[in-house]
């Protein structure tokens, strides 16, 4: 029984990490309707920025971390003018293809600049596990989970209550309406990439706490996709339940199915969930359904 709870809890925490990374994905999707295939690479770039400012430059941990977040925001903001500005008015499909190009480009750049070697990642959070009786939890993921829940609430409120957030929500609804209301679509998309990049960097910090960083970390971007789809691509708040569902399912699969089949079936599990979602409910649990009036 204890073991079941431990599997479930650790799964939930992993799911919340997916939710944090999926949040970057969702923020970008809302603004530009672009399915960002390079999400995992954004996490890698964020991770290397943190590594660069803290361990490589030798700055104090939190100064370096703050600089990395600023650097990440700037990096995100320049993606729109660099890659998408010329594509205004083109089909969404060509923009999605650009994100695949971005994936390849970033992977190449990371390899050229930082090399393929494994780098240590700074511990912003103590690596000592949290123990409740017989249950042990990863401290980085636990703090990350709590942080993600608070952040999701904050970002949801930002999109529904504040004026800059409402502007971005209008852009999420319809680009032409947004422009006819005096909202700059391009600026909103640029902000969204900036936000997405900062969220990805935060995700990297919680994920890699106590681990090391290589370009292979990017795989988490695809692992986070099912969470975004389950939540519905427009919903930030929905990421929390979606993350927990996917994470617990994966955690239980890792605990009970993996030993039986003798392989890492759990790694495939989120994608299995994704396929089922796409069959049963294409707009996810909380996504914007197409309004049909009768």
């Amino acid at each position: 029984m204890i073991q079941l709870i431990e599997y479930a809890l650790n799964g939930a925490l992993l799911g919340l990490l997916y939710a944090l990374i999926a949040m970057g994905f969702v923020v970008i999707y809302r603004a530009s309707k672009v399915f960002n295939f390079a999400q995992g690479e954004l996490v890698v770039v964020g991770a290397f920025l943190v590594w660069f400012f803290t361990l490589d430059l030798g700055l104090p941990l939190y100064v370096g971390f703050a600089l990395a977040l600023i650097g990440a925001a700037i990096f995100g903001l320049i993606i729109e003018p660099l890659l998408f500005r010329r594509l205004v008015g083109q089909s969404t499909f060509s923009m999605v293809m650009v994100t695949i190009g971005l994936l390849i480009l970033l992977r190449g750049l990371v390899l050229v600049i930082f090399g393929p070697s494994v780098r240590p990642f700074p511990d912003l959070i103590s690596t000592a596990p949290i123990t409740f009786g017989d249950i042990t939890l990863n401290r980085g993921l636990a703090y990350g989970g709590i942080f993600t829940i608070l952040l999701a609430i904050g970002v949801s409120l930002y999109f529904s209550r504040t004026r800059p957030g409402l502007r971005m929500t209008v852009v999420a609804e319809d680009h032409q309406i947004a422009q006819s209301m005096g909202i700059s679509v391009r600026r909103s998309i640029a902000y969204a990439w900036g936000m997405g990049m900062v969220l990805s960097t935060l995700g990297a910090v919680f994920y890699l706490n106590g681990k090391s960083v290589t370009f292979l970390v990017a795989e988490i971007g695809f692992a986070a996709l099912p969470v975004a789809l389950l939540a519905g691509l427009e919903s930030v708040g929905g990421l929390i339940p979606a993350g927990i569902i996917v994470g617990v399912a994966q955690g239980l699969a890792a605990g009970y199915i993996d030993p039986v089949v003798g392989g890492s079936f759990s790694a495939v599990f989120p994608y299995l969930v994704m396929v089922i979602i796409l069959f049963l409910r294409p707009s996810g649990l909380f996504g914007w359904r197409i309004v049909e009036r009768v």
């Binding site: 409402l166 502007r167 609804e173």
Partner: peptide, 24 residues
Amino acid sequence: LHVMEGRKVLEHMTVEQNLVAGGH
């Protein structure tokens, strides 16, 4: 202000959010 043809409301947002966004 151009009120376009076809009643282009922001359909997933509430009435009040539509209006507040209009006064952004």
